[in-house]
Amino acid sequence: MIGGPVVAVLDYGIGNLRSAQKALQRVGADARLTTDPGEIASAAGVVLPGVGAFGRCVEALEASGLAGVARTAAEQAIEGGRPFLGICVGLQLLYEGSDESPGRPGLGILEGRVTLLAGDVKRPQMQWNRLDAAAPDGDGARHPLLAEVAGDAWMYFVHSYAAPLGPHTIATCEYGTTVCAAVGAGNLWATQFHPEKSGEAGLRVLRNFVEGVDGR
């Protein structure tokens, strides 16, 4: 597919990135799986996916040489620069670290640590769950990432650890306890759920991201 804003999907050698690329293409982006810092630098938007263990993703990101690129892109986005989307472990990597892999610091863009899903629940949470898209301290306005997504939309989650709730939380879900489902800080956006695997509702989230990229 030609046309649409160029979105760089950081290909640092983990899991299935093809579905993220295909889904972004479906909603109008010129999505490219890439390891090339030049191509990433010139893209209009950046996506940091992630599956598997936190420590393994940190190692892979460092081994690929893209850790610095990802950190810079996320810092710029939080200041209102080029939009950045983290997905699943890509969200968790934005924090200082994770109890899953204590010796492996994250990118430290957002404050706090990722912790094990609390309570007497099956881990991983591997299922569809409903969002609560009102932020805990929310003023009622829907975050642009969730525009035109039902406030209680079903999304697909696969994770055993979760980010802390905080001022950047823009959606949660209930799984034993209240769990961080999405964060937004400036143009830094991230989802714990997999929008590329969440059917039409997930594609709408990706479309919102691509429109955010295109609108700048």
Binding site: I14, G15, V51, G52, A53, R56, P124, H159, S160
Partner: peptide, 8 residues
């Protein structure tokens, strides 16, 4: 599991 994560 080590290569792709348990979720896989």
């Amino acid at each position: 599991a080590a290569e792709f994560g348990s979720q896989c």
